[in-house]
Design a protein around this nucleic acid. Structure first.
Lengths: 153, 153
DNA sequence: TTAGGTGCAAACGTTTTGCAACTTG
DNA sequence: CAAGTTGCAAAACGTTTGCACCTAA
């Protein structure tokens, strides 16, 4: 999973600006900081994680703003919200081109991301079998990773 | 999805009793009511749903008992906990033989359950590619159901 | 008799909201 | 200047816990 090109981030900004313009929303300093931090993040951030990052740059930003900004990003489809079992919501950038699923170690909580076109294809087949128009999906595989298997043995 | 045979429920009871015996836990009236209600339920119940059912039979049962009983059922593998986006945990009976995934309408929240062996097989393939021993998985497809599609048109 | 279980209410951690002050367009 | 946004603190929400009392084994 390498870094995303500047042009990919640019596209996210464009989509966000477009959405904000269409809805009469304003571009504030706080929103800029939160969204830029988020777009440059990797992996799955909790609000807490993100707030910590954001406060390095703008110490006065509060919880509520981060929550509200991520709600906005969710609404315009730029962020996915994930729940991995603990009570915390985690957020992930919704890159245009990319879709991956998660392979999670049930022991050490390590998360591996993978893509498998054959599975995606079968998913579309299932959806159409029931007449659904597929919008998105969530696939999580839970298992024991090699390291934890050998630790146990 | 037809009703489960009495012998299937009997097997759940047996597994529960076994677990309780091994852990020195006691069989109380409240636990019996909650587990029986749960075993005879269909679909995905929230604690609230289940409590409501249970109180028809035993009005004095409290939240805490239902939470504690479902925690127990989770521990012995007889209940799965699911999260479908709203903040609520929902529980589903873990029938021995059966595994299904969920197809969820993003508009009306209707939930269809399906099984697709080919997907399961590919999942095992992915897991083993990363050296994981697969324990369980969660697959949710979100889409627009036929009814909601025609409502929009 | 004693370890476990219950019900209540209080505590908890995360997320949302009301509001007065402030900013953006 | 009007409408949107912020930060704060309070509220709300689902869930867990401490505790005195109860009950199964």
């Amino acid at each position: 999973m390498e870094a995303h090109a500047e042009q990919d981030v640019e596209q996210l900004r464009a989509r966000l600006n477009d959405y904000m313009a269409r809805h009469g929303l304003r571009s504030t300093e706080q929103r800029r900081v939160v969204t830029e931090m988020f777009f440059s993040s990797r992996g799955h951030l909790s609000i807490e994680d993100l707030l910590e990052q954001v406060r390095l740059e703008e110490p006065k930003i509060g919880y509520a703003t981060v929550y509200r900004t991520l709600k906005l990003l969710k609404e315009c489809g730029l962020a996915y919200e994930r729940h991995f079992g603990d009570g915390v919501s985690r957020y992930e950038v919704a890159w245009e081109d990319e879709h991956h699923d998660h392979l999670i170690c049930a022991e050490c909580e390590k998360i591996i991301e993978f893509e498998e076109d054959n599975i995606e294809q079968l998913q579309r087949k299932v959806a159409s079998k029931y007449g659904f128009k597929l919008v998105r999906h969530k696939l999580e595989l839970y298992g024991i990773c090699p390291e934890c298997q050998s630790k146990k043995a």
